[in-house]
């Protein structure tokens, strides 16, 4: 039961580099309140407490693992860790969007590989098709740039959304209860004016 995707240990090493932080806060549009800690929970600030209940000689408990997924029993539709992170805030009841629009209910947390593409017939092979996202991190294949997990074959929320708004498309049209939002593209990884985003993976 290891957290596979958002490995905060390594990511935090990055986070803690002051240089990166300075860069991040100027170069990124800030999703949510701009506080990194809303998504990247600090790890090393506090020591774990020993639970009073339990064995007296129990070793110090390890820090908790966040948004774990149980892939052994997972069925299609069970969100994996990285999508669970998003759904902690973006859920029907928690608010912040995610509504009726089909575009927003795209299935996540399932395997998209060459075999699925072959079986489906209407999908591009993610292992050979370029993502077309562009830029230094977006010049690889769909699998490399858009899919996650140890095998880079899981479709997740972040396949289409970049939570730091690295690509600068801003908030989407669905965000209506804030005058500042409303004309962007929901922190997408690429434009979708003519369905380019969809066509990256869907042949038709």
């Amino acid at each position: 039961m290891k957290r596979k995707y958002l490995n905060t240990n390594t990511k935090l090493a990055l986070l803690c580099s002051a240089l990166f932080l300075m860069f991040a806060s100027t170069a990124f549009g800030l999703h949510y309140d701009g506080k990194c800690r809303s998504c990247h929970t600090p790890h090393n600030a506090l020591a774990s407490e020993v639970p009073l209940w339990g064995r007296a000689d129990a070793v110090m408990p390890a820090p908790y693992v966040q948004y774990t997924s149980n892939t052994i029993n997972a069925t299609m539709g069970d969100p994996n860790g990285i999508s669970k992170l998003c759904m902690g805030c973006h859920y029907k009841s928690t608010g912040y969007g995610l509504g009726q629009d089909m575009r927003n209910d795209h299935p996540v947390s399932f395997t998209y590989d060459a075999a699925l593409a072959a079986a489906d017939g209407r999908l591009w092979d993610p292992e050979t098709t370029p993502s077309g996202i562009g830029g230094s991190v977006g010049d690889g294949t769909i699998a490399q740039d858009m899919l996650r997990g140890v095998d880079h074959n899981q479709l997740e929320c972040v396949s289409c959304h970049e939570p730091h708004d690295k690509y600068g498309y801003g908030r989407g049209t669905g965000y209506s209860d804030d005058p500042a939002g409303g004309d962007g593209l929901a922190y997408l990884v690429k434009l979708n004016d003519a369905g380019q985003l969809c066509k990256t993976c869907h042949r038709k």
Partner: peptide, 10 residues
């Protein structure tokens, strides 16, 4: 404040 240590909350 948010933390993953046991006894804290994220």
């Amino acid at each position: 404040s948010p933390n993953v240590a046991a006894g804290s909350f994220a």
